[in-house]
């Protein structure tokens, strides 16, 4: 995996370590990162995005404790063997939860009925 695959938005309200963690979760859940695939080192990520290495290692550490990543002895991090396989659909749906909540809130603010929103969503997913 290349360090530039991650997108960092420093000014977002979400802390950078969370942004990295979320992206790792998604990439692994979707199978874009295969089990056993090596991750860029903390230094590479930090240098590529000019961010603090401690932030990167914090994200990696959390991902490791979640079982997404595993530490290779002396050779950095890799995607854990069981990481992607065991993800159930409900677990993957949980990853979407924040976005869905935000969507729901915006729809409420716009005083939209559920129907047209769901139709539009279905269309987007169908494409």
């Amino acid at each position: 995996m290349d360090a530039t695959l991650l997108t960092i938005r420093p000014s977002a309200p979400e802390p950078i370590y969370r942004q990295i963690l979320e992206q790792l979760r998604r990439l692994i859940a979707a199978g874009q990162l295969a089990p056993g695939e090596r991750l860029p080192s903390v230094r590479e990520v930090a240098a590529a995005h000019a961010i603090n290495p401690m932030t990167v290692s914090r994200a990696y550490g959390l991902a490791e404790s979640e079982g997404l990543l595993e530490r290779l002895r002396g050779r950095g991090m890799a995607v854990a063997a069981q990481g992607a396989r065991t993800r159930s659909q409900s677990e993957r749906l949980a990853l979407l939860e924040p976005s869905l909540q935000a969507l729901a809130r915006q729809a409420q603010e716009l005083e939209m009925a559920a129907e047209p929103v769901l139709r539009r969503l279905a269309k987007l997913l169908g494409e």
Binding site: A46, A47, M54
Partner: peptide
């Protein structure tokens, strides 16, 4: 500016 930030970040981290 990006160079500087990178330098600062890496020095602090490493």
């Amino acid at each position: 500016r990006r160079d500087l930030l990178r330098e600062v970040a890496l020095r602090a981290g490493e």
